[in-house]
Design a protein around this nucleic acid. Structure first.
Lengths: 211, 211
DNA sequence: CGTACTTGACTGAAAATTCAGTCAGGATTA
DNA sequence: TAATCCTGACTGAATTTTCAGTCAAGTACG
């Protein structure tokens, strides 16, 4: 019902994009069947070709849609106390792994897209952009949390942590480890990697990593 | 010539399994075409169905084959000096990411299998077994390298590191980061995670940790 | 009326799977 | 020894299945 075509996005469009995301989460990018998406969205297959010219178009639109979902979680980091800032990094990362249908759905889709991008480089570009943004976000949070950390160091740490989230997510999603265990591993790693980064005492004979 | 069926594995069987691995590395599990595997192996499509009942059977056998390839890299850790032991962990992990056709091929195939196991749980079981073995191997190496580390701690660290390898591999394989950068990230993380963690040993009030 | 939107049966190409048949070489018999 | 039968790995053309993509025919709204 209703027709706001030009305006934002008709309800059916949204339904289709959500259906596609669900299908991708259910059986992967390569397992996504156009007919299944149509059925899931409760529309006819032809409609998908009317709006998105072909399967690739639907996929591209869905990718963008997922990207938007994922990156809209950007949080406001200003107006946080020192204690909170330290916890900010942790929350930002831990939020990617929890027992929440939407989080899991997006995570599966994201995981799939990354796996597919190895074989189809047209997927790689938007993906790498979003990944880079994520890294920057985390790096900022790290700098904000501990003042002794340089931008470069924070950047490397952020890359490590976001990669780790993806690695742990893989095992979590395939049911090899529980949500709690995944979060435990992540927490441990965050603690270890974000404290005493540079030449802070600790081992005396530390190799001079300060760069 | 000759018929050693019972013995080890006929040459054609091996050829088929290797061909399948190559095809998977080239275009993914879902992109693997039975006819392409046959062509790659230089046999007829029918032979694949003669040996493995169907596509799924071929896939399962190939998974096992890849698993074997991957886990046969188990190294001997005895007879290493203290210095070498410390380096052992590093090598064990860094060997997963390097500019070598075979390493990359196996890595791509492994990555694919992990991604697919999210959707097809029959793939998950052998995969999780191999992953567990890998964790144990790394955990042993960690314990051997630093005596103050408990089994439990080493186990957690190993899980973090192997997850990290998988996460970094994903970005490396899709061309988002270079081999050198991937190795740099991994090295940094290993150093940070394997140098005496404060928590257990009662280091004299060394915990300047924010928390 | 016309324009935007929607349908679902249909098409064709690509891929999986089948199957009737070939062939090499090992056993059995005389 | 040789003639015969058997077995089972192997072939590749034929068949079946699966899907992305098309299209003629609506519906609803202005």
């Amino acid at each position: 019902m209703s027709t706001y075509y030009c305006q934002s996005m008709s309800e059916k469009l949204t339904r289709i994009l959500n259906a596609a995301t669900t299908c991708i989460a259910r059986s992967g990018v390569r397992g996504m069947r156009v007919n299944d998406v149509a059925a899931e969205a409760g529309v006819s297959p032809g409609l998908l070709y009317y709006h998105f010219t072909d399967r690739a178009g639907l996929l591209a639109a869905t990718l963008e849609h997922i990207n938007k979902q994922v990156s809209k979680d950007d949080a406001v980091l200003s107006s946080l106390g020192a204690e909170d800032r330290s916890r900010h990094v942790r929350h930002l990362l831990l939020d990617e792994i929890k027992d929440d249908a939407d989080v899991r759905r997006n995570s599966v889709a994201w995981n799939e897209l990354r796996a597919c991008s190895i074989f189809e480089q047209e997927l790689a570009e938007p993906l790498s952009r979003t990944t880079a943004e994520w890294n920057i976000e985390i790096a900022h949070a790290i700098v904000a949390a501990s003042e002794g950390t340089s931008e470069d160091e924070a950047s490397v740490t952020a890359e490590i942590l976001t990669s780790l989230v993806e690695g742990i997510s893989g095992r979590w999603l395939s049911g090899f480890i529980t949500t709690d265990h995944a979060r435990h591993l992540l927490t441990t790693a965050i603690d270890s990697l974000t404290t005493t980064r540079p030449t802070t005492r600790q081992e005396p004979a530390a190799q001079g990593r300060g760069k």
